[in-house]
Amino acid sequence: MIEISNLTFDYPGHRALNDVTLTVPSGSVTALVGPNGAGKTTLLRCIAGLETPLTGSIKVAGMDVIEQPREVHRIMGYLSDFFGLYQDLTVARCLEFAAASQGLPNADIPAAIERTAQRLDLTDRLQQTSGSLSRGLRQRVAIGQAIIHQPKMVLLDEPASGLDPEARASLAALFRQLQADGMTLLVSSHILAELDEYSTHMLALREGRILENRELKPAHLPDAPRHLHLELAQPDARLPEWLKAYAQVALKGASEGHAEFDLQGDLHAQAALLKALIHEGFAVSSLAEHKENLQESYLRTVAAHEESRQ
């Protein structure tokens, strides 16, 4: 969906993006992560065609953003980190203006408003002015404006900042729904826990460079190794060697009372391993799969990057 090559962007006295090359696959939800000042907002603004980079090219759905920004805007929605709303307009009119200015035919606009309001749970608020809404509701209206024309690609810059936990949960559900509808989402945040629930890919930026751009591990692939943690109630010196010898285990780390390893196989293989451990006399208190969350994944990437620099 997005192809970026050799993108460099300078602010006076500061290089915000440095030779960035990346692709974002269609239908993905990519978490754009990195510390403050990493270049996340600049990257989103360049993709949205709101900033002109120093060098490089950006293509969205095959269209060059720099050459054809207006055409790209028709298939794109963007929520800025410091978004604004027309305070004196009702929610319905905010949505109507967004739909019309994105080129939706007049006949389709009422249905688009209804659909978007339902998606964002704004149906009861349509006649309220946007200036009278709470922060969370205003955020929802702004997201509604970005998606009302059912774009193929949605860019969201810190969409959950300032939202309460309940609103964040409903936002996560909305993003999953948008992905299910075939939209590609690029969501920036430095609060990784909120991205963890719906992201399929992670794009880590630091100092204007890409640290990592990869697919997060799919949860239910049958052939994928399962990362397991084993705890013993009674430490046993035989544990590391025994696990090493077990055919389906790839040991990551072990002590007398604890082990971390990848197990090739499904839940039946895990049950067989547990049975073998108990049969061998190990006092197993816990054997559970450990799923690496986005925060751990990001921190591991940062640590690897720091290590490679030393």
């Binding site: 065609g49 028709r74 963007y78 800025s80 604004g84 200015s101 994105q102 080129g103 404006q145």
Partner: peptide, 14 residues
């Protein structure tokens, strides 16, 4: 001032 200019710039209006 109200930060709605980005939305205007992102519109498909000519």
């Amino acid at each position: 001032r109200d930060k709605t200019w980005d939305q205007q710039r992102m519109s498909a209006l000519d």
